[in-house]
Amino acid sequence: MSVIVAKNLTKRFGQFVAVDNISFEIEKGEIFGFLGANGAGKTTAMRMLCGLSLPSAGKGTVAGFDIEKQSEEVKAHIGYMSQKFAMYEDLKVWENLRLYAGIYGVPHKEIMPKIDQLLENLGFTSKKNTMVSALPLGWKQKLSFSAAIFHQPEIVFLDEPTGGVDPSTRRRFWELIYQAAEQGITVFVTTHYMDEAEYCNRVSIMVDGKIEVKSFYQAESMDQVFQKLARKAKRNSD
């Protein structure tokens, strides 16, 4: 079953075609890497899939809902983790989770037991009452990811999730992503790290608003493929 379907999806801003007729399907439980240089159109494409921006042409369904006509249902069935840390620094760990859970409509009675369970799984129980501002970066990232999937969305969108952390923390983070995928959550990741792309089941590379490659692992390294494709870009990276 495809949980994300994009068909001839297009977005124009005036004369400028930011996303140019892209089509793809993503299966349940897949980890899909969405790559592209600055300005290729990744963010615009992702915003349409999240129900935040209407397509100029084409169609898309996310978790079975039409991104144009049912954007509110789309929003309720996805999770989103932004590259900028988006938790409230002056709230405690559990307060942040309760806030997110409440916004996504998790039943009140279920919230606290689920927070305890989650913190235990993360080995994080001792930090329940810690201010988020006092956590190391790696922990903040794990926490934002956990918050993004707290309401058990069908799909989670990760926008450049692991910039700047040390290699072992980055790997622990990817293990959380693997785990979520095993539980059937579809993972849609944008990243600049070419080696990170290799953690994905499938990748696409966006160049000048179009999708250029969509396949399983290449024999060449991901970096080589990217360099070759992105250098063909005519659009300036603005």
């Binding site: 592209g36 240089a37 700047g164 600049h192 970096d223 360099q227 992105a230 990276s237």
Partner: peptide
């Protein structure tokens, strides 16, 4: 090079 795409980084 933080936050810059791989082509610009190279």
């Amino acid at each position: 090079t933080t936050g810059v795409d791989p082509v610009s980084r190279k």
